[in-house]
Amino acid sequence: AVSDRLIGRKGVVMEAISPQNSALVKVDGETWRATSGTVLDVGEEVSVKAIEGVKLVVEKLE
């Protein structure tokens, strides 16, 4: 799938994300809905860990 190429890519949080709420991230110039197990604020850099349906699963870039 096209989205599989995004695993391992870096992105930027466009809307705050919490474990209860998905929000938008920008990866390679494209906007995607994403979820995370932690709270992520706007502007934080993230890494794509997986794809669940049409959502990216991201975590904060260390």
Rank of each mutant, 00 (worst) to 15 (best):
R33Y: 15
A1V: 11
W32E: 00
T35D: 07
G11L: 01
R33T: 13
K49E: 04
L61I: 12
E15S: 11
Q20H: 12
L40R: 00
S3R: 10
I51T: 04
A1H: 11
I51L: 07
E15G: 08
V27R: 01
V48C: 00
S18W: 10
K26Y: 13
A1P: 11
K49I: 15
R9N: 05
G43T: 02
E45H: 11
G11C: 06
V12F: 09
E52G: 04
L61T: 08
R9Y: 07
K55Y: 15
V2H: 10
V25Y: 03
R33K: 10
E59N: 05
I7W: 04
K60Q: 05
M14I: 14
K60V: 06
Q20C: 14
L6W: 06
T35V: 13
S3T: 11
V46Y: 03
E62V: 12
V42D: 02
G29C: 10
R5I: 07
V42H: 03
V42G: 03
A34S: 05
S3P: 13
K49S: 07
D28E: 07
N21V: 09
G11S: 01
T38F: 09
V25Q: 00
G11D: 02
V42A: 07
K60A: 07
D41Y: 15
D4R: 13
R5E: 06
T38L: 07
V42T: 05
V39C: 13
R33M: 15
L56G: 00
V39S: 12
K55G: 08
T31E: 09
A34K: 00
D41T: 14
V12Y: 09
E30C: 13
V58L: 04
V42C: 06
K49R: 10
E59L: 05
N21A: 10
A23V: 14
T35P: 02
T31W: 12
R33A: 13
D41E: 14
V2Y: 10
V27P: 01
V12A: 04
E30T: 07
V2P: 15
V58A: 02
V57A: 04
E52N: 11
G43I: 00
K10Q: 08
E44C: 12
E59R: 05
